[in-house]
Every structure is written in C-alpha cells, then in structure tokens.
Deep mutational scan, measured.
Amino acid sequence: IEEVKKIVSEIQSKQLTRITINGNTYQVNSPEELVEYVRKVFS
C-alpha cells in the first residue's frame, strides 16, 4: 500500500495522463480515476 501511495503522489505531482500498471497503459483524466484503476489492480 505504501508503494501505491508513492506512485499516486508521483503521478499527481507530475500531472501524468497515462499510467502503466502490469504492462497495461491506462488513460487517466483525474486523480479520482487513477485511484479507481489502482483499486482494481490491487484489490
């Protein structure tokens, strides 16, 4: 979970619009959307 928080804060600070998780690239339009992807991947 700490690793996830680190990734999320990194993305928020860079305002990235794409994230790659487990080889899948997602278009991310908002931090909320990012959190949803993270929940799916780590749930």
Rank of each mutant, 00 (worst) to 15 (best):
I1M: 12
I1F: 13
I1W: 14
I1G: 11
I1Q: 12
I1S: 13
I1P: 12
I1V: 11
I1N: 12
E2K: 07
E2M: 11
E2V: 11
E2N: 09
E2Y: 08
E2G: 08
E2F: 11
E2P: 07
E2D: 12
E2W: 11
E2S: 10
E3N: 11
E3F: 15
E3I: 14
E3D: 12
E3Y: 15
E3P: 05
E3T: 12
E3R: 13
E3S: 11
E3Q: 12
E3W: 15
E3H: 11
E3V: 12
E3A: 13
V4Y: 15
V4F: 15
V4T: 04
V4Q: 07
V4S: 04
V4A: 09
V4W: 15
V4H: 06
V4N: 03
V4E: 08
V4G: 03
V4C: 15
V4M: 15
K5Q: 14
K5D: 15
K5M: 14
K5C: 14
K5E: 15
K5V: 11
K5P: 04
K5H: 13
K5N: 14
K6W: 13
K6P: 03
K6D: 07
K6H: 10
K6V: 09
K6T: 07
K6S: 09
K6Q: 10
K6E: 07
I7K: 03
I7M: 08
I7W: 12
I7G: 02
I7P: 01
I7E: 02
I7L: 13
I7S: 01
I7V: 07
V8H: 02
V8C: 08
V8I: 15
V8S: 01
V8N: 01
V8D: 01
V8L: 13
V8W: 05
V8G: 01
V8A: 05
V8K: 02
S9K: 14
S9D: 13
S9Q: 15
S9L: 14
S9G: 09
S9M: 14
S9H: 13
S9V: 09
S9N: 12
S9E: 14
S9F: 14
S9Y: 13
S9T: 11
E10S: 05
E10G: 03
E10C: 14
E10I: 13
E10R: 15
E10L: 13
E10D: 08
I11F: 02
I11A: 02
I11L: 03
I11Y: 02
I11V: 03
I11C: 03
I11E: 01
I11W: 03
I11R: 03
I11N: 01
I11M: 03
Q12P: 02
Q12M: 15
Q12I: 15
Q12Y: 15
Q12R: 15
Q12E: 09
Q12N: 07
Q12H: 11
Q12V: 13
Q12D: 03
Q12S: 06
Q12K: 11
Q12W: 14
S13G: 07
S13C: 10
S13Y: 08
S13P: 01
S13D: 12
S13T: 11
S13N: 10
S13F: 10
S13H: 13
S13W: 08
K14A: 05
K14V: 04
K14L: 11
K14G: 08
K14T: 07
K14E: 04
K14Y: 07
Q15S: 10
Q15H: 10
Q15R: 13
Q15N: 09
Q15F: 08
Q15W: 07
Q15C: 11
Q15D: 02
Q15V: 04
Q15Y: 06
Q15I: 06
L16V: 05
L16Y: 04
L16I: 04
L16N: 01
L16G: 07
L16F: 06
L16C: 13
L16S: 01
L16D: 00
L16A: 02
T17N: 05
T17G: 01
T17C: 13
T17H: 05
T17R: 06
T17F: 10
T17M: 06
T17A: 04
T17K: 06
R18Y: 08
R18C: 14
R18F: 08
R18Q: 10
R18V: 11
R18N: 06
R18L: 08
R18P: 00
I19W: 06
I19R: 00
I19G: 02
I19E: 00
I19T: 01
I19P: 05
I19Y: 09
I19Q: 00
I19L: 06
I19S: 00
I19H: 00
T20N: 05
T20S: 06
T20H: 05
T20P: 01
T20Q: 05
T20V: 10
T20F: 06
T20A: 05
T20M: 08
I21H: 02
I21P: 00
I21L: 10
I21W: 05
I21S: 01
I21C: 11
I21K: 01
I21Y: 04
I21A: 01
I21T: 00
N22H: 09
N22I: 04
N22Q: 07
N22L: 08
N22C: 14
N22F: 12
N22K: 08
N22W: 12
G23S: 03
G23P: 15
G23Y: 02
G23M: 03
G23D: 09
G23A: 02
G23W: 11
N24R: 14
N24H: 13
N24I: 15
N24F: 15
N24C: 15
N24L: 15
T25V: 12
T25R: 04
T25C: 14
T25G: 02
T25F: 09
T25Q: 06
T25K: 04
T25L: 10
T25P: 04
Y26W: 14
Y26Q: 02
Y26H: 05
Y26T: 04
Y26P: 00
Y26E: 01
Y26S: 01
Q27C: 14
Q27L: 08
Q27S: 13
Q27H: 08
Q27G: 04
Q27P: 01
Q27A: 11
Q27D: 08
Q27R: 07
V28D: 11
V28C: 15
V28F: 15
V28S: 15
V28M: 15
V28R: 15
V28Q: 15
V28K: 15
N29K: 08
N29S: 13
N29M: 09
N29C: 12
N29F: 09
N29R: 08
N29G: 15
N29D: 12
N29E: 10
S30D: 05
S30L: 06
S30M: 04
S30E: 03
S30I: 05
S30F: 06
S30Y: 05
S30W: 06
S30Q: 03
P31T: 08
P31Y: 09
P31V: 13
P31I: 08
P31R: 01
P31A: 05
P31W: 15
P31F: 11
P31N: 02
P31K: 02
E32P: 03
E32A: 11
E32V: 04
E32L: 06
E33W: 07
E33A: 07
E33D: 07
E33M: 07
E33Y: 03
E33H: 03
E33I: 03
E33R: 03
E33G: 07
E33T: 03
E33K: 04
L34M: 02
L34G: 00
L34T: 00
L34W: 04
L34P: 00
L34R: 00
L34H: 00
V35E: 07
V35F: 06
V35A: 09
V35Y: 04
V35N: 01
V35C: 08
V35G: 02
E36W: 08
E36K: 07
E36L: 06
E36D: 10
E36Q: 07
E36R: 10
E36I: 06
E36M: 08
E36V: 08
E36F: 07
Y37R: 09
Y37H: 07
Y37N: 02
Y37I: 15
Y37M: 15
Y37W: 13
Y37F: 14
Y37D: 00
Y37C: 14
Y37L: 15
Y37E: 06
V38A: 02
V38Y: 03
V38M: 10
V38Q: 01
V38F: 05
V38E: 00
V38G: 02
R39W: 14
R39H: 09
R39T: 10
R39D: 02
R39V: 09
R39S: 06
R39L: 15
K40C: 15
K40Q: 11
K40R: 11
K40V: 05
K40Y: 12
K40M: 11
K40H: 10
K40W: 14
K40P: 00
K40N: 09
K40F: 12
V41M: 14
V41C: 14
V41N: 06
V41A: 12
V41Q: 06
V41K: 06
V41E: 06
V41G: 03
V41D: 01
V41F: 14
F42P: 00
F42R: 01
F42E: 01
F42G: 00
F42T: 01
F42W: 05
F42K: 00
F42V: 02
F42I: 04
S43A: 13
S43N: 11
S43T: 09
S43C: 14
S43G: 13
S43Q: 12
S43E: 12
S43L: 14
S43W: 11
S43K: 10
S43R: 08
